[in-house]
């Protein structure tokens, strides 16, 4: 149905004919697309198009009925669990910001810090100067340096979103999935977030799901439109906005 099968060699993520159904309802219906290494990709689509479900499949929360998800040209993710996939180098930001509310901003970042996730490593863990520096760096990037000792639960909505992005950076993933990062943000925060994601995408691949068109525009990247669990169109924002079918199902509602 799509041309995703002719994928280039530098593919980091390749979804191949993924279908997921919930009680007979097909949330994803033969979804295929690929993301290149170092690419920043925006995914748009009306409510219920299957964007979050797509992320659930990639991160191991949902196992598809059929289809494969190939990561870094090697591993099929569809049989692995969340922790395994995270440790392969895939980070995820949820649609609803989820940070550890009863812990400080600093501790949230420390928890996300890349490294051994085993029990003993955690029991005898000590932060070394390089790691401390890395946390400081990320605090700077997500503009939370002054809030490092506050409880995450006391942050504003926008700051929580940033903290979660910061946690993803701490994980140092090769691929980052970001679900609606600017929902509920002010215009200024939205612009700042676009900036942040573009910076982040310089050294890794990032897939962003978003409704906010102004935000997608400022990301200035390739856009994939999902509709009813499959790819409806793909290309630059300008081509997408000119696409008849997209206008019909989505933009011209």
């Amino acid at each position: 149905m799509t041309t995703a099968a002719h994928r280039p060699d530098d593919t980091i993520l390749y979804l191949d004919a993924i279908s997921v159904s919930f009680d007979g309802f097909k949330a994803l219906d033969g979804l295929s697309f690929y993301v290149r290494r170092g690419e920043l990709r925006a995914i748009i689509g009306p409510n219920g198009a299957g964007k979050t479900t797509m992320m659930d499949v990639v991160t191991g929360k949902t196992h598809p009925d059929i289809g494969q998800v190939i990561f870094a040209d090697r591993v099929d993710l569809t049989r692995l669990d969340e922790a395994r996939i995270a440790n392969l180098g895939i980070g995820r930001k949820f649609q609803k910001p989820t940070v550890f509310e009863t812990q400080t901003v600093f501790d949230n970042l420390e928890l996300a810090l890349a490294g051994d996730r085993g029990l003993w490593a955690a029991l005898f863990f000590r932060l070394d100067p390089a790691q401390r520096q890395r946390i400081d760096q990320v605090l700077e990037t997500v503009r939370l340096t002054d809030h490092r000792h506050r409880l995450a639960g006391h942050l504003s909505h926008g700051q929580k979103q940033w903290l979660e992005i910061g946690m993803l950076l701490m994980q140092n993933p090769q691929l980052l999935l970001v679900d609606e990062p600017v929902a509920g943000m002010t215009d200024e925060e939205t612009q700042r977030t676009a900036q942040m994601l573009k910076e982040i995408a310089r050294s890794r691949s990032v897939v962003v799901v978003e409704h906010d068109m102004a935000f997608v525009k400022s990301l200035d990247c390739r856009v994939t439109v999902l509709h009813e669990g499959a790819v409806l169109a793909e290309g630059s924002l300008a081509t997408i906005q000119a696409n008849e079918r997209v206008i019909e199902v989505y933009l011209g509602r």
């Binding site: 991160t59 929360k61 669990d81 969340e82 922790a83 995270a86 440790n87 980070g91 995820r92 949820f94 989820t98 940070v99 550890f100 509310e101 009863t102 812990q103 928890l111 996300a112 996730r117 946690m167 994980q171």
Partner: peptide, 15 residues
């Protein structure tokens, strides 16, 4: 405590 407050988030961090 992370597990107590947000179990699935903790899984996605790789724990």
């Amino acid at each position: 405590r992370a597990i107590r407050d947000a179990e699935s988030r903790t899984r996605f961090l790789g724990y």
